[in-house]
Design a binder for these strands. Sequence first.
DNA 1: CCGATGACATGAAGCGGTTAAGTAAGTTGC
DNA 2: GCAACTTACTTAACCGCTTCATGTCATCGG
Lengths: 338, 338
Amino acid sequence: MSKRPTIADIASQAGVSTGAVSYALNGRPGVSAATRDRILAIAKEIGWHPSVAARSMAGSRVNAVGLILARPARVLGMEPFFMQFISGVESVLSANRTALLLQLVPDHDAADEAVRFWWAERRIDGVLVMDLWADDQRPALLAELGVPAVIVGRPRKGLDLPAVWSDDAAAIDSVVDYLVTIGHRRIARVAGLPSLEHTQIRTAAFQAAAERHKLDSAPVVSTDYTWEEGAQATRRLLTSADRPTAITYDNDLMAVAALSVAHELSISVPDQLSIVAGDDSQLCLVQHPSITALARDIVDYGARTAQAMLDLVADGRTGVHQTPTATLIPRASTAAAP
Amino acid sequence: MSKRPTIADIASQAGVSTGAVSYALNGRPGVSAATRDRILAIAKEIGWHPSVAARSMAGSRVNAVGLILARPARVLGMEPFFMQFISGVESVLSANRTALLLQLVPDHDAADEAVRFWWAERRIDGVLVMDLWADDQRPALLAELGVPAVIVGRPRKGLDLPAVWSDDAAAIDSVVDYLVTIGHRRIARVAGLPSLEHTQIRTAAFQAAAERHKLDSAPVVSTDYTWEEGAQATRRLLTSADRPTAITYDNDLMAVAALSVAHELSISVPDQLSIVAGDDSQLCLVQHPSITALARDIVDYGARTAQAMLDLVADGRTGVHQTPTATLIPRASTAAAP
DNA sequence: CCGATGACATGAAGCGGTTAAGTAAGTTGC
DNA sequence: GCAACTTACTTAACCGCTTCATGTCATCGG
């Protein structure tokens, strides 16, 4: 296996200095068009590839971005969201010859630690920050370290970080409006992790909508997104004195669990109970009855996020990118209130 | 933002040369215990982190491994397997300060291309190869390029690459044995992508088991793991002249789809039809009836794979690592044959 | 015809480590 | 008491690329 070619090899073949080669390969001024073409041709011919290590040492970009996920594996596995999101991110990154560093960590501290390390080792050009929780220290930490970051979620006040978000509140509104329209007055919400910012946004939107429509009852139960807690929450709601006629869930797995619980309690869906899932996937389709869900293009969401990251590291462009609001897809699990 | 500390900073504070610092930090001989301790203390105090770039330029490892997944996003999203596997991989890698580069590609050619790039740019120390298909060129390509690789699947003849695998054939045997024991004589198999090696292994095992038990019928239908094809395959099997009394599926989503189809055809599960899922997850638990499944510790599978990779790059250790065979977890979807 | 201006290219200094080779002590053996 | 090692460290070259200061022409305005 022969030594891999370097710009010095190209330089000697082209009869120029390595500096000229560097300028040519990076499309910077300082070389004539003729020389540039010659250099590019030689580079291609001898199969030259830049050494990321050398580039990063010389202070330039490393063409890699980090994504840290702080959720337990079993939750991550059951949530189609993440893989679809990653897939969207990847499609944009790989088209731009940028690598994705993925790290799954058990908790918030580990997430901070991971960012510190990556940055200290100059492994990444920036990070994608997902699953922000209330009082999340990460944006501040990143700003302090000077790590370029894109926030997936509501833009932070006071920090000039680009953010990519979708209007969860509007989506929740559309669900409540829909349920109210078909006659429901007792609507419950089974929420995800209460510490997550988007859970709080949704819960606030839900409560505001309940207020607006003057619902008879609008209880909110928090869970950790798992089937167990979804089932438990549902059981509690359905055995309460003031049983809801419709329940919305923050993901699809819990909505599926709800179907089980309803069956177990001999409550028929959708005749006696309507169910809405907060995420859409094949899971909702495959059930009996199929589940009404909030759907959005998650792959696109990931792609926009990656693009925002590239824009940020390329020319420091920040800004807020809003993605389309999720739309309600009515299926067989919702019907007029009993 | 102060400049990050380098070994030169440590050296000047400790009053030694950078060479000595390097030896000390890497646990190599050439420095006294006292000096070493002093250096380590200073390094810790000033928060020194090695620069991967500098290290890798100096010819050492880059502490990163690649994982390339060649499946469509929607399949990846619905298969808890991948995230769990990645989670296992990650746990071992991050404990060893090694990064995971993830790339999702649309097809096989793109996968090859991705490896070439990563390797050419010296971004990775090695790759994890999953989802081998029949006549897969990747092991040969990797051997040719000299990329350290760990095969997730059956070891390749003729190539000295470490492999981590589980005995799918034995798992399939246990399923068929179980079904035969409770009286089934017409058992069908709804397989995953026929091009994948492990699908072929399982199908062969299934057919051998059918032969051994002299089953009345043992049809095999291929799918792409999606709900749609799983449902379609089930429909075809259940409306055929020689309707099976038990069907096994290569993942859990298709088994869930089967429940739907059975319901649609008014075939009761498990009285008239038994269903077995090839992967276990919360999905199987949450159904009505809950689904009998083959379960295995996927996180552990990923962890072993990562460990094999680390062993390989550390000291060239190859070898075959076998993980525990999946075990059958009987639930409510299987019962004695009608 | 001269000095100023650009365009193009060179040379060399870093970036932050690793490591072979060199050196100055202290230790050992006989 | 001296050669032969060992130990503990230093020195400096090197990895591949970027970039700034510098240099050399050809061209142009006056």
